[in-house]
Design a protein around this nucleic acid. Structure first.
Lengths: 215, 215
DNA sequence: GTCTATAATTGGATAGAC
DNA sequence: GTCTATCCAATTATAGAC
């Protein structure tokens, strides 16, 4: 579906041993779009940053919108594709949840993820497919990963959860807390690690109070 | 502080019995900015929508940025200024929390609030003061209101909460759940009331499980 | 204060040479 | 594929009349 709408990372040239223009155009577009947003970046700027002519940019991407879509798809995949909780032990449930929360927050609060969120939220009314691409790569994926872990913990007898899907959403919501929205609305650059760790601990603490097995 | 940066709602004319141009310009700017975003709206469009000339628009607002700031300040105050939980009974804690969650969600998930969030998130890197204006009128205010209620409930002996400020943040986070971010990333117009009610119930249910007094 | 008309700039996209 | 040069439309902002 995404491809039919022009949202795809274009093919490398057959001899893709070194970057090449297409790659440097994408890299320049990624930098500038994430930093300044779709509307504030011109194709002139991207061409200059990529050390290419505007005509070359248009030879690779039919329009500014298509280039933007390619950037969103690329960053979404690269940034969120690796989130996994497979290696964690459901018997050490509190420690594992803390690791999950910490990893999740490091991911979604990273300056790159915040910038990506920002440009998508800004442009999704005009380009709805961007929201779908990101949602599947990001929130839907991490929710699924976390739900899988919760199921394993229930099976291991370390958590008592009636609805694991709902609980996964709640865990994510607690972890985000106010920090995520705050970074979107009042960006402070990178947050202090202590702040993030405390948010992770608070989320796990409340989650365990609600769903932990009392012994 | 906001005023020193040009973010303020301009004075009405002394005889402010009927709208006047300034008001119709603000109204037109509000409609178009919230609908299409800062970058996609031109001063021509605003002037046309306000049935005024562009020169008149500039007679009231020195720049497009200033007009945008005035719109954000105005909508933030108007939309979030009325959120209050004073009338709720802390002895009927579950019912009161459900009312709070429902009101809160009706507010933050309303199409206007989502649109406001969207334009602020998009432009806050260029106009940081917008985030401050909104944060104080919106999230900070509702958090304070909710924390006040939680304190009253603790005093009434219906909730056991070690840190009411943290708990207020957690309550808000649980209420938002995935719905708020989802509306920002994959707007679906207005949500079905049943979906919102269920989110409110789920938030209260988990909150009570963590902080309710067991009897 | 309000208007018409226009200045000055910028931005998306393309033609044609190599 | 890549470049230079350019077209054309849109945009912010202002000058000058009333």
């Amino acid at each position: 579906m995404a491809q039919s709408l022009g949202i795809s990372v274009p093919q490398e040239a057959p001899d893709a041993t070194r970057p090449g223009k297409a790659e440097s155009i994408l890299a320049a577009a990624e930098r500038t779009f994430l930093e300044r947003g779709f509307g504030a970046v011109s194709m002139d700027t991207i061409a200059r940053e990529a050390v290419a002519s505007k005509a070359t940019v248009y030879a690779h991407f039919a329009s500014k919108e298509e280039l933007f879509g390619a950037v969103v798809a690329r960053v979404s995949e690269r940034r969120f594709g690796a989130f996994s909780v497979d290696a964690l032990d459901p018997r050490e449930v509190a420690a594992s949840l803390l690791t999950i929360a910490q990893r999740f927050l490091d991911l979604v609060l990273s300056p790159e993820a915040i910038a990506l969120n920002r440009v998508i939220i800004a442009e999704v009314p005009r380009f709805p497919v961007l929201g779908d691409v990101f949602w599947e790569a990001g929130p839907a994926r991490s929710r699924a990963q976390i739900e899988t872990f919760l199921r394993r913990a229930v099976a291991a007898g370390t958590l008592a959860i009636p609805d694991t899907r709902l609980a996964a959403d709640q865990f994510v919501a607690l972890a985000r807390g106010e920090l995520h929205l705050r970074q979107l609305l009042r960006p402070q650059g990178a947050l202090k690690p202590e702040i993030v760790s405390e948010a992770a601990r608070n989320a796990v603490s409340m989650f365990m109070r609600a769903f932990g097995i009392r012994s």
